[in-house]
């Protein structure tokens, strides 16, 4: 991470650092509120997340079979696009690729690791993509939280205009930014990066052992009731610890924890619904960026009553 630090310090207070940004499909559709709030908060911190031209779906969930190369092509193609951004001068000597979606992050970083460690696999994929320029293996995949950490949470604290005072938020990490260990951005058993961020926003982070327990992921397609049970465990434990809402960085976790509350409620009538935020939405509120960047319409459980109660948004 030392390279990251030196590169970000290159920017002057007035200069805007441009970094290639990989959105992923869901950030353009059901998680548009995640993207909008993240881009706006990044800008407030002097960073322009520059969308990679002609990016393609990363083919999320990293292929685990050892002989399976074709499912890595999608990720590598995106790395070639980052090279092209440098070639065409859209960014200057910037090999970092920042993603918001935890699943895209895991997929891209895993592929990148395999390409960097396995020259034969890389050359096979380069051969297959003969119409593209070769991937040189220089891209560095970063999650947005890592980028924030490299800026320093102090800098974020300085930017806060409306501290999230008294807002009890349980950070939920899920799997994809923590595991496997060589991909994870934090301690896989006791992560703290979201807690640190929430503290800098003035919120009260609530710790729960379920913060790193899987929400059921893609099982939501075929086994929504199993996912609802997992969501119930995660949500009700957070509530027991006093949480008023949860924060996440994964659009699939968000769907399973937020939209599946419909199924949770059906199975557990006593369950009280609880809002799920993207952590960037909370940043946008604390930065006082304005309604157009919050995107609460896309949250399944409306968080506005809670925010109004805490006097964090206008009546």
């Amino acid at each position: 991470m030392t390279t990251t630090k030196t590169e970000t310090t290159k920017t002057t207070p007035t200069g805007i650092a441009k970094i290639p940004y990989y959105p992923g499909c869901t950030l353009k559709t059901t998680a548009k509120n995640f993207e909008n709030s993240a881009i706006a908060t990044a800008r407030a911190l002097g960073i322009e997340l520059l969308e990679i031209p002609r990016w393609n779906c990363c083919g999320t969930v990293f292929s685990l079979a050892d002989d399976d190369l074709i499912h890595h092509v999608a990720s590598v193609r995106n790395f070639v696009r980052v090279q092209e951004m440098n070639d065409y001068g859209l960014v200057k000597n910037e090999n970092r690729l920042v993603t918001l979606c935890a699943m895209c992050f895991n997929t891209l970083k895993s592929t990148n690791l395999r390409m960097k460690n396995n020259a034969e696999d890389l050359s096979k994929i380069n051969d297959l993509m003969y119409r593209e320029e070769d991937y040189q293996g220089k891209v560095e995949v970063l999650h947005f939280l890592e980028l924030l950490k490299s800026l320093g949470f102090e800098k974020i604290r300085d930017r806060v205009k409306k501290p999230l005072k008294g807002l009890k938020i349980a950070p939920y990490y899920g799997c994809m930014i923590l595991r496997p260990q060589e991909i994870g951005i934090d301690d896989p058993e006791d992560p703290t990066i979201q807690k640190d961020l929430l503290e800098s926003l003035g919120a009260d982070p609530i710790d729960t052992p379920y913060k790193r327990v899987c929400c059921g992921s893609y099982q939501t397609v075929k086994e929504k009731n199993i996912v609802a049970e997992l969501a119930y465990d995660i949500l009700s434990h957070a509530q027991k610890e006093g949480a008023e809402a949860l924060a996440t960085v994964c659009p699939l976790c968000a769907f399973n924890l937020d939209n599946r509350q419909k199924e949770v409620k059906a199975a557990h009538p006593d369950f009280e619904e609880i809002p799920i935020f993207y952590v960037t939405q909370l940043m946008a509120i604390a930065f006082g960026l304005g309604n157009e960047f919050y995107g609460f319409d896309q949250n399944y459980i409306d968080p506005r009553p809670l925010l109004k109660k805490k006097a964090l948004i206008e009546q």
Binding site: C25, T30, V61, Y218, V221
Partner: peptide
């Protein structure tokens, strides 16, 4: 998969389910 269920699933769910299943 019922059409109304498909319409509400996020892309990410379907893409990953296709990869795994």
């Amino acid at each position: 998969i019922p059409k109304d269920e498909l319409a509400c699933l996020p892309q990410i769910a379907l893409v990953s389910a296709c990869r795994k299943f």
